[in-house]
Amino acid sequence: MKTIDERPVQVQPARGTRWKKHHAEDVAGRSYTFICAALLIVIILSIVYFVASKGLATFFRDGVSLSDFLFGTTWDPEGNNGEPMYGVLPFIFGSFATSLLAALIASPLSICASLFMTEIVPGWGKKLLQPVIELLAGIPSVVYGFIGLTVVVPFLRNVFPGQGIGIAAGAIVLSVMILPTITSVAADALASLPRGLKESSFALGATRWQTISRVILPTVLPSILTGVVLGMARAFGEALAVQMVIGNAPHIPRSLFESASTLTSVITLDMGNTVMGSAHSNALWSMALALMFMTFVFVMIVRLLERRHRI
């Protein structure tokens, strides 16, 4: 099937007609967009190449085996206790645990908020919540981290055994940060539902609640999941706020309230202390590569969900 974009580019005016202003504009516009697109692709490819070349050096130059890296539980890149060890499993665990838990906390709240905005009180509900959510999305992560450190951590310390820092604190802070993502995706999906769908359900004698739970939510579920995955991707990549509340101990914690680390928090903490080209630095790049790979996986999941939704 030929789409419009695939039609042969025809910038030359037909023989015999003069060059007019709009032809020149057409050429200028096309060239400009083409250059921008090309630049973007070059930038992205160079980033990928750069991260990959550094990150793969850990395995090809420094001789660390992939399984030692991914499944090793000891992180001792400077070799303080003998041989340097580059096991990042604790950080992978920390990243997954915080972002999954954050999504688990944020999803029900976001779904309720989006329903409130679009279905329950579409008038002032939207007027009230929309700015709040946009504001939440705009708060810098350092502020979230700061609030987490001064409010969430002491609260957890008082209520649960432990220092308060850890996976739970990180997940709570992240859940607030990804709330806007999930809410706005879900609200958009709800708002774009065909009106007749809801009315058909009402016309069959369904109550509002039955309509929401059995018609509306199942219909927008793929879109909501897209929002959840996008939120998780954001949580997975967030560094600063998490680093401020998670404690940064390099091992797998035994409870949610014990100091832990994520891939991102280790990278931000360690990167200033390594020499470019050293095995330690390369190991950080390998972690960056792992993060990029995960982002890629998240994007793929979103794509799949969207494709399923279209059918």
Binding site: P194, G196, L197, E199, S200, S201, A203, L204, V215, P218, T219
Partner: peptide, 12 residues
């Protein structure tokens, strides 16, 4: 009272 609209709107 059943109702049917102009645009077919089956549930998904």
């Amino acid at each position: 009272i059943g109702m049917v609209w102009q645009k077919p709107n089956p549930f998904y």
